[in-house]
């Protein structure tokens, strides 16, 4: 497979930048959907205990450096997962 290295590195650089901005300056989440749901009295009933709730390590909440590491690690996992799914689908064709 021909890998466009410039695209890959630019994409990764931008992704890391997004994670850093998201963890340092634009971290506070008060989503419209959650506000509307809360106003209407909808109640969450989780059936799955996520290991990193709200994108933070339990016990290390608010630690920006840890959040950045988590963000970057899962960005790489997402890259691998999407690329992997695409590669498997292409191989089957």
């Amino acid at each position: 497979m021909v890998v466009d290295k410039k695209l890959l590195y630019t994409g990764l650089l931008l992704s890391v930048l997004f994670v850093v901005i998201g963890c340092v300056w634009l971290a506070e989440s008060n989503e419209t959907f959650d506000v509307v749901a809360e106003e209407f009295g909808a109640e969450e009933a989780s059936i799955w205990s996520a290991p990193l709730p709200d994108y933070e390590v339990p016990g290390l909440e608010g630690n920006v450096a840890v959040n950045i590491i988590i963000g970057v690690a899962f960005t790489l996992l997402t890259l691998a997962a999407a690329w992997g799914v695409g590669a498997v689908l292409r191989k089957r064709s």
Binding site: D4, S15, E28, T75, L79, G86
Partner: peptide, 19 residues
Amino acid sequence: LVPLMGVLTAMFFAAQMMN
């Protein structure tokens, strides 16, 4: 298209962290 899909998916996963 496969690498582009991988890179864009990762980028928008990261972009969704910016509120």
